[in-house]
């Protein structure tokens, strides 16, 4: 469970997050909003790369903001980035090992990497270099990195951006398996409303730093305010 209370982020004169209070409990929760709404900024606050000027965030009851980014990773926080960050000159297995090195005790490292490889279905290309992968495989590697160790919260920043509908569907199936197979909560940002609808039981809508709506996905997507601000309806 993520509990955000009265959060304010300020960059100079702009407040990309302004007095945000929200509690997310769904195993897979969605975060949507127009460009520049502050979605990535919220992920950066959760993972520790942006310091809010005010407010608090708790993950399963533990204060997050007191921890350094590294401590949060060790405590089970994982994230992917809006632009994929696969290392080109490491193999798929080594891209996964690169995170296992630091958060999995060495006797279990090979097993953790193998389990992630099996989960994302990339065992056949485990020894291929990152540079030889297509975008879908890259997004899978990013997802694989997130399930290594004992994840408690996985933050995915537009994990399906640039994928075909079919690939996005395959990715969605994997994300849906995470809460039961890895007992981690997932928070997904995406612009594809259909994907969010299929994946997230709960959705939060941000609009220029303000909370526009939060609740069961169907209710939120039917909300007239959301339709006007986000889906471009009058």
């Amino acid at each position: 469970m993520i509990a955000i209370d009265n959060l304010v982020v300020q960059f100079g004169g702009v407040k990309p997050i302004n007095q945000l209070t929200a509690t997310l409990t769904a195993p897979v929760a969605g975060l949507i909003g127009p460009n520049g709404a502050g979605k990535t900024t919220l992920l950066n606050v959760l993972s520790g790369f942006v310091r809010p000027v005010q407010g608090s965030v708790a993950l399963n009851g533990n204060g997050l903001l007191e921890m350094t980014p590294l401590q949060r990773v060790r405590a089970g926080l994982r994230r992917s980035f809006q632009t994929e960050q696969v290392v080109e000159d490491l193999t798929v297995a080594d891209n996964l090992a690169a995170i296992a090195d630091h958060i999995v005790p060495s006797p279990q490292r090979a097993e953790a990497v193998d389990r992630a490889l099996a989960f994302i279905g990339l065992r056949p290309v485990a020894d291929k270099l990152g540079q030889s992968l297509n975008l879908f495989q890259r997004r899978l590697v990013e997802l694989g990195k997130c399930v290594i160790g004992k994840p408690s919260l996985i933050l995915l920043d537009e994990p399906a951006a640039g994928l075909t509908d079919e690939e996005g569907g395959a990715l969605r199936e994997l994300v849906l398996r995470i809460p039961t197979e890895f007992s981690a909560q997932v928070l997904v940002i995406d612009h594809d409303v259909e994907l969010i609808r299929a994946m997230c039981s709960e959705t939060m809508v941000l609009d220029y730093g303000k909370l526009l709506a939060l609740g069961p996905t169907e209710t939120v997507l039917a909300d007239p305010d959301v339709r006007r601000a986000y889906l471009g309806e009058l």
């Binding site: 993972s47 790369f49 980014p69 590294l70 990773v73 060790r74 994982r78 994230r79 980035f81 960050q85 290392v87 000159d89 490491l90 080594d94 090992a97 690169a98 995170i99 090195d101 630091h102 958060i103 990195k145 160790g149």
Partner: peptide
Amino acid sequence: AKPGRAWALIRKGETVAISSGVS
């Protein structure tokens, strides 16, 4: 080995490296 993988992540970006648990 492990140091090389950590260096590769740092090369990719310090934010990426930290997110992978690299000091």
